[in-house]
Design a protein around this nucleic acid. Structure first.
Lengths: 393, 393
DNA sequence: TCTCGTTTCTTCCGTGTTAGAACTAACCCA
DNA sequence: TGGGTTAGTTCTAACACGGAAGAAACGAGA
């Protein structure tokens, strides 16, 4: 187990790419001697390397930036829905190197674990140091699914099952928490200490980052953000809320409204395309949705006091079609004296979920680092019973 | 300046009252030897004392709980509005020992500072170790008022002015942040790491605590929580929002609605009394307000993922009159799978604001502790230019 | 070409914080 | 009176950290 400073160093190099010791001093609040001392074991173990970044024209001794050793490891991330697996292979920085989507043939935990193992193996990646699994529902300690409504699971020790099938450490997390962690480590959060995450797609998801930490409340698993009221005239969601976020923004609801207007079945992509092409019925629905999205963003940033938002999810195409409406709705519900909301759109659609899952595996791998062992052990370390993810109350 | 562990010890003893070293080990994550070592300088300096809590019947050596030395110091807290000062004298745990409200005769900063000094002196307390000032508006570094709309101030170095008048270290903070700090240190937050704070009164205030930290965003000074839309049919606030939190909940708005219905001027207290006595017009207005309050609580806990809320402010009487409506409205906007919202009502009305201000002074005094000086210096230490409150970006 | 200035990084070393082991203190109970 | 139990202390080794001074590696100018 690493000390706090060692963890901070590992995280900073992982997140901020090649970075010199001198820049790390200010970022970590440590002295130059400490950085020399802390970095050496990482270099000796082969986890970090020193780039010889030849001179950039400035005077003085040239910097020797530290970076993660190239090709150190791969990670896998799996988002599990009720009927499909979305599987990503990534490098240590959660950049996609492989991605596949495949249907899920059953819901019993052992079978799903086996399918995950097969899908991860089929990615064909070597040196997989960990697999992250993201799931809609409540997760305890990164190991156990407390409940997952889409899979009908209760208290399933799923990380164990995946580890047994795959022989690689597995990490479990709520899908929205995982996505927020990905944005915090490898997306927007590298520069901003707090923001909300809103996902649109089959459902509406919500997560929150404050003071550089993802809010790990049990609330996160329940999906409270999905039924925030946004319109008094909109359609009704499955739970009976008129004009709630799900009713206004879920792809199925938008497709159904446009289909009804056109009296023929249309899917979400077609609905967006029609709106983009100026079809009046589709435009009305999409404009209402965009206004609702803007209201949701404004409400959440106003109430969380975080002036930034990440929009993601497989239904994010809505934003491209109606960006102006979204921004106008945000501005309308935002005090002009407050700073404008910074909006970041993650265009990667569904793969963002799997990338979030991989981020969880990466974070757990960082916690597993042992500097007194050769580098291979990062990949072959037994999945300890002492995993700490989510263990803090 | 104290080390991190020393600060943690000071804070833990201050907040958790008489507390044994052994309990502190688990709370601070330190070993018994460390607690012996850390506590000794505080005892030697006379800041803490050892209670000899005689046996409670359990076996083993009896505990020697640590506590703050009784009568160590007093603090003053002042909430400044556009036309009044609310001045509290407290002990080291922000418990009121004196309270006074007086009109403000002018708005120029020097004059206000002089009136504050006079009011604090008139409390008649000895050993005042610091004065906290809470103000509606944005505050920088705990020293400067960036802007305060009710006072028409911009960039006023107000802490300096108060220190010059009073000869005691002064600490400045936004009023809602101060109130949230008070709840975090001496109220609800002692047991719960995250909650929202909603105040009702002349205006509607909002603050947020996550992971044991008050969110110190610049947003806090703007008052974004006050104009959250809560009803489509309610009255219009000064800024033109129909059914916003101010329009539904501010005491002036409620009084005006009831007055209009009765065609005679009534104040807020009378409006509440009429509603309590079953007057139909007043009941309608108050019930709508209670429903709006419940919606606001539900929205904020749902979007901050914090299942607890503190209600405070001088208009809090509304809750007592219509508690059932408030709770019903919360439940209606809350997913039944989520845990129920824990509601804490701070009944102390206006003095809660001044108590918040005193809390800021207490926190700053803890940061000023020097263990190598006799205890008197806590009270006579010069107000250093190196105050750190709010200095972190 | 040689020195000087500049910036980065390292070595050496003193300081201060921490916890493990063993111990003492202070009680209850039989 | 002596054993059991829990609280707290003393001693000490480990170690993380930063200050001071120095080394490394460059550009710039004489």
């Amino acid at each position: 187990m690493l000390s706090d400073s060692e963890s901070a160093l590992a995280r900073a190099v992982l997140i901020h790419g090649p970075i010199s010791r001198s820049e790390l001093t200010s970022r970590l609040g440590l002295s130059p001697p400490s950085l020399t001392r802390l970095a050496k074991p990482f270099l000796d173990a082969g986890l970090l390397v020193e780039l010889d970044d030849r001179t950039d024209g400035s005077v003085g001794r040239p910097v020797r930036p530290l970076d993660v050793r190239p090709g150190l490891a791969h990670f896998a991330g799996v988002k599990v829905t009720g009927d499909s697996l979305h599987v990503a292979g990534t490098d240590v920085r959660a950049r996609l190197v492989a991605y596949e989507e495949r249907p899920l043939h059953g819901r019993d935990p052992a079978g799903v674990a086996a399918e995950i193992a097969r899908a991860v193996r089929d990615l064909g990646l070597d040196r997989i140091a960990g697999v992250g699994v993201a799931i809609g529902g409540a997760v305890r300690d990164g190991r156990v699914v407390e409940f997952a409504p889409f899979l009908d699971w209760t208290d399933v020790p799923f990380a164990e099952l995946v580890e047994a099938e795959l022989g690689v450490p597995a990490s479990l997390e709520n899908d929205l928490v995982a996505l927020a962690e990905a944005e915090l480590w490898f997306g927007l959060g590298r520069d901003i200490p707090g923001f909300v995450v809103i996902t649109i797609g089959a459902g509406i998801g919500y997560a929150l980052v404050v003071n550089g930490q993802v809010v790990h409340s049990r609330e996160a698993g329940v999906g409270l953000g999905g039924h925030i009221p946004l319109s008094t005239t909109g359609p009704v969601c499955h739970s009976g809320h008129r004009g709630c976020a799900e009713a206004m923004l879920a792809s199925g609801s938008i497709a159904a409204q446009v289909s009804a207007a056109h009296r023929r079945p249309l899917d979400y992509a077609e609905a967006l395309r029609l709106a983009h092409d100026g079809d009046p019925a589709a435009s009305t629905v999409v404009d209402e949705a965009a206004t609702a999205l803007g209201r949701l963003v404004a409400l959440s940033v106003n109430l969380t006091l975080q002036p930034a938002a990440v929009l993601a999810g497989e239904g994010i195409g809505l934003f491209a079609v109606a960006e102006a409406r979204v921004r106008a709705a945000i501005a309308a519900d935002r005090d002009p004296r407050a700073e404008p909301v910074r909006l970041y759109v993650d265009e990667s659609g569904f793969s963002a979920w799997a990338r979030g899952a991989a981020t969880i595996a990466i974070q757990d791998a960082v916690e597993r680092i042992r500097l007194d062992q050769p580098v291979q052990d990062l990949m072959t370390a037994p999945a300890g019973s002492g995993e700490t993810r989510g263990a803090t109350p």
